[in-house]
Design a protein around this nucleic acid. Structure first.
Lengths: 168, 168
DNA sequence: TCTAACTTTCAAAATAAATTGAAACTTATT
DNA sequence: AATAAGTTTCAATTTATTTTGAAAGTTAGA
């Protein structure tokens, strides 16, 4: 397999993985392209490499910046913007967990908190089942949230070392 | 808030959460409906509650069974099938991790293994960057996979207890 | 200020994914 | 075997998401 084939395969694989995590194929591919670029790339480079329009490239780059996965970079003497990805996959994973925690876990806990105020008839099976599900979900999500919060504060080696001890 | 409003809100919230995890809104809502049902439901019940077609209901129920999140149930004297969800969210989470590990992590590792065989020119920056990314991703994914594999073998209390000690 | 390089926006078009519903299929019962 | 209850399939349709590309908006430098 030569470089071009391998690159193609890598972009393809990262795009597929993104899809199953609710990230658009193109956004994942832009990220993949930057992950394997030794130098930062400009919008034009990305449009050309991935054969996508200017608007599409711009939008996905902006989203990746919002997710904290890539950074704008200025080059001396150049007017246009360049982009560079965080290459440390451990940091990438932590960043994604951090963002998703904010975007998903917090709203879910908020809704569960809210649902707990529903008026129940104490001997209505359906009412009790809903309340029980709400309380149970809240408990599990809070525990998972706690673990994730702590986990992203450790560095890779500390976490892996600790887990190794835990599971050995 | 009365029961009907709360139920509506719960189905809604679970559907939204599903969407951001690459699960269709309807599949998540069918799951949510079964999560809060004290008794098992038949296809007809689900069609009526969620206002969806028979084909749609059937397909999503089948997918949920494939994911191991709900189970078929027979009722004495009834010919049709009933469905019941696993109510323990911790078990639900473990089941999802188990399935995604199989569906996503294994293929990614397979592709990385494959990409490592690419022919590189030892002083070509791009070639080296791709190879480096591949090796690095493989390492991180393998470690995460190891941790997840062990984690799903523990029960909720053992894991939470261990993590608590770890992070205290 | 004016121009040119560059970025952002957004309505329209293209593409992808989910949904319907009726027909085909399966299975238990008489 | 015939019927009826129930399940599955799938082509056509609907809905949602992504992408395009040209126009509007910015900003740096002459």
């Amino acid at each position: 397999m030569n470089y071009e084939e391998a690159k193609e395969k890598f972009l393809q694989a990262w795009g597929t993985l993104g899809s199953s995590w609710g990230i658009s194929r193109t956004m994942a591919q832009v990220h993949a392209l930057l992950l394997i670029s030794p130098d930062s790339l400009c919008t034009e480079d990305i449009m050309k490499e991935l054969q996508i329009s200017r608007g599409n490239a711009n939008m996905n780059l902006r989203d990746l910046i919002d997710w904290g996965l890539i950074f704008r970079e200025l080059k001396a003497g150049e007017r246009k913007e360049f982009f560079r990805a965080e290459k440390d996959i451990w940091k990438v994973a932590k960043q994604i967990i951090k963002e998703r925690r904010k975007r998903e876990i917090e709203p879910v806990l908020q809704i569960m908190e809210d649902l707990k105020t529903m008026e129940i008839e104490p001997n209505n099976k359906k009412h009790l089942a809903l309340l029980e599900a709400v309380n149970h979900i809240e408990g599990v999500v809070e525990k998972a949230d706690f673990a994730l919060e702590k986990a992203i504060k450790l560095d890779e080696n500390a976490l892996v070392g600790a887990l190794f001890k835990l599971f050995k």
